[in-house]
Every structure is written in C-alpha cells, then in structure tokens.
Amino acid sequence: MDKISAVDSVAFGYLNEYDLENNCISLNYVIENLFENMPLLRSVIKTDFGKIGAIILP
C-alpha cells in the first residue's frame, strides 16, 4: 500500500449505488475491481486552513 503525505483533516464521501446502476455498473464490481476493497484517496486540497484529504468509501 502506498503512503500519502500528512493532511490536516479529511472529508469522506461514498459511492451512490443508484448512479452506478443507472450506468450499468454494479456496486460489487466497482468495490472489488476499482477500489480493491479499500478506501480511495481522491484528492488532497490545499486551503488556507491546511491540507484536506478527500476520501471515497466503497
């Protein structure tokens, strides 16, 4: 597993099963194959208040 630089806080998001199904993609496929059953660091946003990590939960 790769390490990331330190962040001051994090914001969590999640997958919307409804949106995935409307695009003919199963939630299980995304979790197992794209996320590899792990949370995904989507981005790190630098603000005046520090660095915020955006994490998507499978």
Rank of each mutant, 00 (worst) to 15 (best):
K3R: 13
S9M: 07
L57R: 03
Y29A: 08
M1G: 15
I25Y: 02
E17I: 12
F12A: 04
R42V: 12
L15D: 00
M38E: 14
V44H: 06
S26M: 05
T47W: 01
M38P: 00
D48I: 00
D48Q: 05
A54D: 09
N16G: 05
P39N: 05
F12C: 06
L40G: 04
E21S: 15
N23Q: 13
F49M: 12
N33T: 13
G13S: 13
E36K: 10
I56F: 08
I45R: 15
N22R: 14
S5A: 11
S9I: 01
N37D: 12
G53V: 04
D8Y: 00
L15Q: 07
I52T: 11
P58W: 04
L20C: 02
D2Q: 09
S5K: 15
E21R: 15
L41H: 05
K46C: 13
E17S: 13
L15Y: 02
G50Y: 02
P39D: 07
L40R: 10
R42L: 10
S9Y: 02
S5R: 13
A54S: 11
L20I: 02
F35Y: 12
Y14G: 07
D8V: 00
D2L: 06
I52K: 04
I52G: 03
L40Y: 07
I45D: 15
I55G: 01
A54H: 06
I55K: 00
G13R: 08
D2H: 05
A6L: 13
M38V: 10
F12P: 01
I52E: 09
L41T: 11
V10Q: 11
I45E: 15
I4L: 11
V7Y: 01
G53C: 04
L20K: 02
M38G: 06
E32V: 07
S9E: 13
P39H: 03
E17L: 04
L27P: 02
E17G: 12
K51I: 03
T47F: 04
E17R: 14
N23H: 10
G50F: 01
G53A: 14
L34H: 11
L34S: 06
